[in-house]
Design a protein around this nucleic acid. Structure first.
Length: 599
RNA sequence: GCCCUCGUAGUUCAAUGGAUAGAAUAGGAGUUUCCUAAACUCUAGAUCCAAGUUCGAUUCUUGGCGAGGGCACCA
């Protein structure tokens, strides 16, 4: 909590001690921003003190109010409504706050991470098909969490796991061999991930066709699929890959190579990068050490057929197999191995997995096992579980062609931004073609990223294409627009002679309501940043950025910045606007959203 | 069957146990000689139901009802 809040709370606590003779912990006196229908800046809620039998809430509040005004010079007035003690800060306090912090770099970040290391794993695609809408939500959350934690003073290591082997990629490989005719991405002029994904779809068509007669005989779906020639080919392919068959491995490298090149493009376009990649193909045989360790510690048990499992029924979870009878690893065994690898390399204090909520159970089991193995990093594990992205038509299903691909969406958002901008050409006519292209991309991504990050991660969300391309209202471009407006004012101001702000010169006696509200909002920034990091919730920062933009526009509408009555007032307002711009820029930057200087 | 999420204006989202539940959008009415109208102002509209805890419950507890996800020697 801020220094200011601490001071008010400890002072109130001291007053309670002197007047009532009771020890009150400052945290028993919560402070919040005063609701706008009442007078004041901050409100102390004194109801919690009623349990000490000191009198009515009203009386307690009066007593504290009188004492606080007396001792803290920046408090100018108070009023009491029921148990709410509303405190008003002097105009000087706010003016000084703005003057002190408007240019401060330190104000933009925190140090409470104390250099602790946090590993964040996110995105984690399969290499057999392009990134889709669900990945986008994942990426935005993972990226912004990384940046928020960095700004909070942590050393963050972003990592990404590629699920690059097994049945899925084998399906694409089988289809490509069957009908691909040696086609490369360049041949068709599409990105590599798209090409690989198309063969994955082609495979499913083949499978469906071959399974149809079997299904007609009344054979169970899973069984029918397994009996098809194409599915047999997939199993053979996977086995050959595991045996290191040169031809299969070479094909696998080729197709995965196409994927990696393409997905790297998408990463670059979105401005994300990772410090470390993990590949399932490199770890899928690992985990044996973890299994051996567990057996040794008596945490796991081995059955007669050689399979290994752990019984977690006492922890309200089920039994879980960790090693097959044939000695091969499972998904969870790999995760045990990767967790150990991460610690070996980074010695992280915290390890965060950004993965959809359908894997919640998996992570409960994983974390419980690591805890039972008494891993040093076991209590720093966190699954940032986010809800599914749904379309108005329902869930995305690749088989039904309702997948929204990331690249397509990025393109669509950009052209929407372009269309919208061209209606306002007057504003941007002096921009070059390159600058305009960059602007469209910035706005398109701003719209998309903000749309995905503004919702509380753990809730499922609806992606309405119509609404997502909207650029008005509670949207990324609205916030970007507010920033651009501020930059325009600054450009204009540079051509005028506005003196530097002088704290010693009196403004008017009071600040305008809009000036004070905006200042108070900017004051909240460090608390929001901290909360967003502590609760792993970037949405808090997104909603905050929107609030700042909204409040700035209100201020902008109401107050004349450049032609105020007094030059010093202009100077103050300019400084305040610039401060708001810096906070908007920083907030959006932490969310992976860029800001245009004009739009 | 068991476990986990979530139910807030027509719709999409907010609200550390605090005051008269905020925004956006869709609807209605306005604002441009003035720093960017992608803006601003006004208007109408909501806590799934029932008990309980509390000075105070959208928030916590229990029970309903409704939606989604999960409980593989799959990933």
């Amino acid at each position: 909590m801020s220094h200011l809040f601490q001071e008010i709370q400890t002072t109130a606590s001291a007053i309670a001690k002197e007047v009532f003779g009771v020890d009150i912990d400052p945290s028993e006196l919560p402070l919040q921003e005063t609701r706008k229908e009442f007078d004041g800046d901050f409100t102390m809620v004194v109801f919690p003190l009623t349990k000490h039998k000191l009198g009515s809430p009203q009386q307690i509040a009066e007593t504290l109010g009188i004492g606080l005004i007396d001792r803290l010079s920046y408090l100018t007035a108070f009023n009491v409504i029921k148990g709410f003690l509303n405190l008003s800060l002097s105009a000087e306090y706010w003016v000084n706050f703005v003057a002190d912090q408007a240019q401060s770099e330190a104000f933009l970040s925190l140090d409470h991470g104390q250099g602790q290391t946090v590993v964040v794993e996110y995105c984690s695609p399969n290499t057999n098909k392009p990134l889709h809408l669900g990945h986008l939500r994942n990426i935005i959350l993972g990226y912004s969490l990384t940046e928020i934690l960095r700004a909070s003073g942590y050393h963050v290591v972003p990592t990404c796991l590629f699920n690059d082997r097994g049945t899925n990629i084998s399906k694409s490989m089988v289809a490509w061999l069957a009908v691909g005719k040696e086609e490369t991405p360049a041949d068709r002029g599409v990105k590599g991930d798209k090409l690989v994904g198309d063969y994955y779809v082609a495979f499913n068509d083949m499978l469906k066709e071959q399974a149809a007669p079997l299904l007609a005989q009344g054979i169970d779906k899973r069984e029918a699929d397994n009996q098809t020639a194409v599915m047999q080919a997939v199993h053979d392919m996977t086995v050959k890959w595991e045996q290191g068959d040169p031809e299969v491995v070479s094909l696998w490298k080729k197709m995965n190579g196409w994927f990696y090149e393409a997905v790297q493009d998408t990463f670059s376009r979105m401005g994300i990068s990772f410090e470390k990649f993990y590949y399932e193909s490199e770890v899928y045989l690992k985990g044996k050490e973890a299994v051996a360790e567990g057996l040794e510690k008596g945490v796991f048990t081995q059955a007669a057929d050689g399979s290994v499992e752990i019984d977690l029924t006492e922890d309200k979870l089920d039994k879980k197999t960790l090693l097959r009878g044939n000695g091969t690893s499972l998904y969870i065994t790999q995760d045990l191995a990767i967790a150990a690898d991460k610690y070996a390399e980074f010695e992280m204090d915290k390890s965060i997995y950004v993965v959809g909520n359908e894997q919640e159970y998996h992570f409960q089991v994983l974390f419980k096992i690591l805890e039972k193995l008494e891993k040093p990093f076991a209590n720093g594990l966190y699954h940032l579980s986010y809800g599914m992205v749904e379309l108005p038509t329902g869930k995305m299903k690749s088989r039904e062609g309702t997948i929204v691909e990331a690249d397509d969406l990025l393109d669509e958002m950009r052209s929407q931004a372009k269309e919208e901008t061209s209606q306002n050409l007057a504003k941007v006519q002096e921009m070059s073609t390159e600058e305009l292209e960059l602007l469209y991309e910035t706005l398109g991504q701003g719209a998309l990223k903000y749309y995905l990050v503004k919702v509380d991660p753990r809730k499922k969300m609806l992606f309405d294409p119509k609404e997502s391309i909207e650029l008005k209202g509670n949207t990324g471009p609205f916030i970007q627009y507010s920033y651009a407006r501020i930059q325009a004012v600054k450009r204009k101001a540079a051509t005028m002679t506005i003196p530097a702000f002088h704290a010693a010169l009196a403004l008017e006696d009071h600040l305008m309501e809009e000036e004070k509200t905006l200042s108070r909002l900017l004051f909240r920034y460090p608390a929001v940043l901290k909360e967003a990091g502590d609760s792993y919730n970037p949405a808090l920062l997104a909603n905050y950025a929107y609030e700042v933009a909204k409040e700035f526009n209100r201020f902008y509408q109401q107050a004349t910045i450049l032609k105020a009555d007094a030059p010093n007032t202009s100077a103050f307002r300019l400084m305040l606007a610039d401060f708001a711009g810096r906070i908007i820029e920083q907030s959006l930057r932490l969310l992976g959203i860029g800001v245009p200087s004009r739009m």
